Simulated assay, not measured.
Amino acid sequence: MKELSDQQLLRYSRHILLPEIDVAGQQALLSSRVLLVGVGGLGSPVAMYLAAAGVGELHLADGDTVELSNLQRQIAHTTADVGRHKVASAAQRVAELNPDVSVHEYAQRLEGEALDAAVSSVDIVVDACDNLATRFAVNQACYRAGVPLVSGAAIRAEGQLSVYDFRQADSPCYRCLYHEGGDDLRCADSGVLSPLVGMVGSMQAIETIKCLLALPGTLCGRLMIIDALTMDIRQLRLGRDPGCPVCSAGR
């Protein structure tokens, strides 16, 4: 791996002090590639923290433009960005924060072969989108490619987080937990507590770093549920569904 420059040693010094990361771990982060699907409420803190942490390549995918109602929670965007593509706005924030990070922009909803190609080109995918159809498609693409998936969600005052690590033979997938025909709740209809998306997004960034560095204790096989009003945080064990339409038959 490429040696860290003096500037990088200083920039990432608080990571390097951690025995779980050290110089080798920081070098690994700088060589990593992450696809972030959605750069809204959840994706904003994920993008900012992964950029700050020194993830070498961020692939940002989102077909939406910034709206005024987004600014209550989507901290990668500013009032001046209203009407601008979210990926362009987020890419600018990333560049301002850390010039070490290379950004690839997909100003569109990734589907079909384009989604498969985007997933296959990275080390891990972070699902920060807001609709079930995209979540199902991303899950299936990650399973086919054997690429880990960090999934988060937030609505009203409730958040969820899990990791589907398809490098592990016994990992469940998103479809083991959710099935077609389920409720597709959106912030535009139900509302969301602003700092909650920052909380869940920050946790997604942590799980992403843990997966990239092969650190123990990821949320693979567990679902974290957060109630922001009571600050109750609990975890449920997740197992593979033998009838899952995605992962039950194997690749």
Rank of each mutant, 00 (worst) to 15 (best):
G38W: 00
L9C: 09
Q7M: 12
V122W: 08
D123H: 15
V122Y: 05
Q108G: 00
R175W: 02
D184V: 00
E3L: 14
G41V: 05
R156W: 02
C142V: 02
L30Q: 15
Y49K: 13
Y49T: 06
L18C: 13
D184W: 01
C173M: 04
A95W: 01
L10T: 11
G43N: 07
L238F: 13
D64F: 06
F136Q: 01
S190G: 01
C247A: 01
C211P: 00
L212V: 12
L35Q: 00
A154N: 04
L115G: 12
H59N: 04
D130E: 10
L219E: 06
V200S: 06
L58C: 07
E113Y: 04
G83Y: 03
L229W: 10
S5W: 10
D6R: 12
S31N: 12
Q92D: 03
M1I: 08
L29Q: 09
L42A: 11
E180L: 13
I75Q: 02
A51T: 07
R73A: 09
D62K: 00
R156P: 02
D189A: 05
A107S: 11
G243T: 09
A157T: 06
G43Y: 09
L219M: 14
V82C: 12
L185I: 06
D81H: 00
G221F: 07
C176G: 08
T208G: 08
Y49R: 14
L17M: 15
L71I: 11
L161T: 07
S171R: 05
E158T: 08
R84N: 00
V66K: 03
D22K: 04
C176L: 09
E20K: 00
G38T: 02
K2Y: 08
I21G: 14
P99A: 14
L149M: 10
L10R: 06
L97V: 04
G159I: 06
G38I: 01
L29D: 04
Q8S: 15
D6A: 15
C247Y: 01
M199W: 15
L97G: 04
L35K: 00
A28N: 07
G201D: 11
R93S: 15
D116W: 09
A47E: 07
D165E: 09
G112Q: 07
G221H: 11
I233R: 12
D232M: 10
G182P: 01
L35T: 03
G54C: 06
E96N: 05
N70Y: 07
R73I: 11
L35G: 06
E158K: 04
G239V: 13
A145I: 04
P195V: 11
L4H: 08
D183R: 07
V34A: 02
P245D: 15
A228I: 03
R167M: 06
